[in-house]
Simulated assay, not measured.
Amino acid sequence: MSVTIGVLSIQGDVKENLLSVQTAVEQLGINASVCSVKTPEEISRVDGLIIPGGESTTIGQLSLVNGSLKILKEKIENGMPVLGICAGMIMLSNTADDRVVGKTDQPLLDVLDVKLERNSFGRQRESFEANISMNSIDIPNFNGVFIRAPSVSDVGSDVEVLSKVNEKIVAVKKGNIIGTSFHPELTQDVSLHKYFVNLVSNQSN
């Protein structure tokens, strides 16, 4: 049985994620199609979705305008696996404050019970890479690329912390939902994308 994995293609690192998912699918030998999605109709047809890094306010506003947020929220709440990367994790959360400007009034999906701080590690010029481990999902070694990255300052009781950097939470999981502060699509390592592809495949079988 074939599965369809989409990358939300409103703004951000779309191409890089499409390539990473395609590589992951090929390495796993799974029958899956990978596509970019934008409209509610396209989103309704996917079995799993990646919300890429980019500008979370822009992604949220444009998703609200074209009606994608509603279908996205419904599908995630009904169990569709989703991977939110950087801005994508902000989109999944129920609250997001900016380290500099404080509370932000931006559209959020409100499906991940975390308190999130935008630009937690500083602005663009303070981007960095760090070796992280996500042992609970069998990824002991991963090179995390952090660009204007958020961090999670608090998690709900049903949210699992996957990884920390400098005592700041940078990866979380809640059932079918994964959120990362870092950009896995900007490395050659597709182990996190493979984990996600497996999640989608297992959910659909």
Rank of each mutant, 00 (worst) to 15 (best):
G53C: 09
A171F: 11
V14M: 03
L8Y: 15
E129H: 05
S56C: 09
A96H: 11
I5H: 01
S93C: 08
D110M: 08
V170D: 01
D158T: 12
V170G: 03
G67V: 09
Q11G: 03
E167Q: 13
L83I: 05
S20K: 04
H193W: 01
I10G: 02
S201R: 07
F182G: 01
I132L: 14
S151F: 07
P150T: 05
I178V: 15
V152R: 02
E77M: 13
Q124V: 10
A149L: 04
N141P: 01
F121G: 00
E77I: 14
I147M: 07
V161Y: 03
I51S: 02
L112W: 03
L116Q: 07
P184C: 06
I71V: 15
T39P: 08
S157K: 15
S56T: 04
F121A: 05
V155M: 03
L49C: 05
G48H: 03
R99K: 15
K75M: 08
R118K: 12
V145M: 03
M91S: 09
N66Y: 11
H193G: 01
V197C: 02
L49F: 11
Q203K: 13
S191I: 06
L19C: 00
L199F: 02
I147D: 06
D158I: 04
A130T: 06
A96G: 12
S133V: 07
E41W: 07
S68K: 09
D113C: 10
N119R: 12
S20V: 01
Q203E: 09
R118W: 14
G79E: 10
S191W: 01
R148H: 09
S181H: 08
H193P: 00
L112F: 10
S44P: 14
V101T: 13
S20F: 00
L8Q: 04
V111R: 05
N202V: 10
V159E: 04
S204A: 15
V34E: 00
D13W: 00
S127H: 10
N119V: 04
L72N: 10
V190H: 00
H183W: 08
L18F: 02
L162Y: 05
V101A: 15
V155H: 06
V7R: 02
R45W: 07
N141G: 03
Q203H: 14
S191V: 02
V114N: 02
I71L: 09
S153G: 12
K164T: 15
G179E: 04
V114S: 03
L64M: 12
D113M: 09
D138G: 07
S44Y: 13
R125I: 15
K168P: 02
E160V: 10
V159Q: 04
P52H: 03
S20N: 10
N176L: 07
I178L: 12
L92F: 11
L186Y: 04
D47V: 04
K164V: 15
D154G: 10
N176G: 04
